[in-house]
Each structure stands twice: as C-alpha cells, then as structure tokens.
C-alpha cells in the first residue's frame, strides 16, 4: 500500500502540471470564441450582432452608441474568423463561401464608413442588417445541408 501511495506521490506533480496546461488551453480557446463547432459560434455572434444593431436605435447617448457599434464590429469580425475556420475544414462547401461573401460585405461597410456615419445613417444600418440577415440565411442553409 505504501508503494502505491509513493508512486502516486511521484507522478502527482506531472498530473498537476498537465491539468494546469489543460485548463489554460481550455480558457484560451474559450476566449477566442472558437469551439469545435465554428458554425455555431458564427451563428451566435451574428445573432448577437443583430440584437446589438437593434439596440442602437433605443440608445440615446452618442458615446454609448459608438461603444455598442464598436462591439458589434468586433463580433462581426469574430464571426468572420469562425466562418473562416469552418471553410478551412469544409473547403468545398459553396454555401459557406456565399455566407463568407456577404459577411465580408458587412465588414467592408465598417471599413468604408466611419463609426459616426454608421450611427447616424439609417441607410447604412439597414444595409448592415440586410447583409447580416442574408449571412444568417446562408448559414442556415449550410446547417441544413450538414444535417
């Protein structure tokens, strides 16, 4: 029995070190928003972006509006990253490529116009909303094809 405990005690530090590595790895992966299901991640981020876009109309303070828009922009870019990962794993999926095209068009709007202009212009906001909805529809098609 004593030998058993000695063996366990001998290997326990190694177990502990690898467990710590695992936790760190898990947290880092979680932080990037990337999971084993990048399609789901992209979908969630797009949902979040749409709700933030709707939220913009109800916010009155300019500063809060700009901050919300910056968060919206970030989540769109993260959705794009997640979709890139899905496309990397499923290179022949044309629907996913279509979704990427519309999502790129959204992010290009953010490159083209200043934050202020997007906040103030209803037309640009409508364009953003339409493109996000289009991307969501394309993603739904990808999911349907997968199932």
């Amino acid at each position: 029995m004593k030998l058993i405990f000695e063996s366990i005690r001998e290997y326990l530090p190694y177990v502990f070190v690898w467990a710590v590595f695992l936790v760190i790895g898990y947290l880092l992966v979680k932080r990037t928003g990337f999971s084993k299901t990048p399609l789901k991640t992209a979908e969630k981020l797009l949902d979040k972006s749409l709700s933030m876009l709707k939220e913009l109309d109800t916010i009155e303070e300019e500063l809060v509006k700009t901050v919300t828009l910056a968060r919206l922009r970030k989540s769109l870019y993260r959705a794009k990253d997640a979709l890139s990962i899905y496309i990397f794993d499923n290179r022949l999926n044309k629907t996913a490529a279509n979704a990427m095209e519309t999502l790129t068009a959204v992010t290009e709007l953010f490159e083209k116009y200043s934050m202020d202009l997007i906040v103030k212009s209803n037309d640009v906001k409508k364009d953003v909303q339409n493109l996000i909805t289009e991307t969501e529809l394309a993603l739904a098609q990808v999911k349907e094809a997968e199932s």
Binding site: L22, V29, I85
Partner: peptide, 11 residues
C-alpha cells in the same frame, strides 16, 4: 491539453 493548444495555433 496539446489538442487545445493545437486548436489555438490553427485558429
């Protein structure tokens, strides 16, 4: 743990 880090590198 290595798989997680590989995912990070891939990402």
């Amino acid at each position: 743990a290595i798989s997680k880090f590989m995912l990070l590198i891939k990402y």
